[in-house]
Design a protein around this nucleic acid. Structure first.
Lengths: 126, 126
DNA sequence: ATTAAAATGAGAATCATTATAATAAAATTA
DNA sequence: TAATTTTATTATAATGATTCTCATTTTAAT
């Protein structure tokens, strides 16, 4: 594991805010000012391949990178904001149905976040 | 609804194969040879906004478009192949937890498809 | 210390998607 | 129907995220 790989892993796991490659690049430059974006992508891909971090792709915005620990995502359909949440664990159900072929699952729940609901309410009333 | 919009809707609903914008463009050109790719994107966006079709975004490949009818997706981690599947319906559970804010959910289950499993077996034995 | 292998940096290239601006088609009104 | 307005379409340029290339540097192995 190279210093960059390690540091990127740290950043993704410390800042639980689903950073994009570019945001991780910015963070990393604080520590290693000469690092390049290509290196960030290389290491993010490597870490994803090995399964140390996970990629969260949401339509219409660049991929985000997230720690592995089991949790689901709430996505606001208005503003796109991503929030961690834990719904019931589907692993055993899926394992039962798919057998050894099963690897993982990704559950995204779309909703309107409180802030956007409020905005909508205000607009409707006018 | 314009002729293009209607036809694109038809294509997405007839061919259950999760076509990309470009593939839909190819299909549409068979009927309207002069249609442009921008029109395909415009109408796909319109249809998604209205909720008549849905976009399926998978990391590392262009967005795909799919009929609305409730089903989940199996994604092979090796070859990326997408398969329709129906797991238990989570709607009521999610509605209970999120109330009126809930809109929809997207469940992707990652696995190794039979074809890729076979390949892996063969390689392991060598 | 030498060689081989892997990682990095800088920037070019790619690919999907969106924006633009001119034209064409459709809808509305008179 | 003609004139006017609105909307959709085309072709192409622009954008933005990501990957590729290749020369250089770093790391590991002999």
């Amino acid at each position: 594991m190279t210093k960059y790989e390690k540091q990127i892993y740290e950043i993704v796991n410390k800042l639980t805010s689903h950073l994009t490659a570019d945001q991780i690049f910015s963070e990393l430059k604080k520590i290693y000012p000469s690092v390049s974006l290509a290196t960030v992508y290389n290491n993010l891909n490597k870490l994803c391949d090995v399964g140390l971090i996970r990629r969260v792709s949401i339509e219409g915005s660049p991929d985000r990178y997230d720690r592995i620990s089991k949790h689901d995502h709430l996505v606001c359909r208005r503003c796109g904001k991503l929030t961690d949440v834990c719904f019931e664990d589907l692993t055993s159900t899926l394992e039962r149905q798919l057998g050894g072929a099963f690897l993982a699952y990704d559950l995204k729940v779309f909703y309107i976040c409180p802030a956007c609901r409020k905005k909508e309410m205000e607009q409707t009333q006018i």
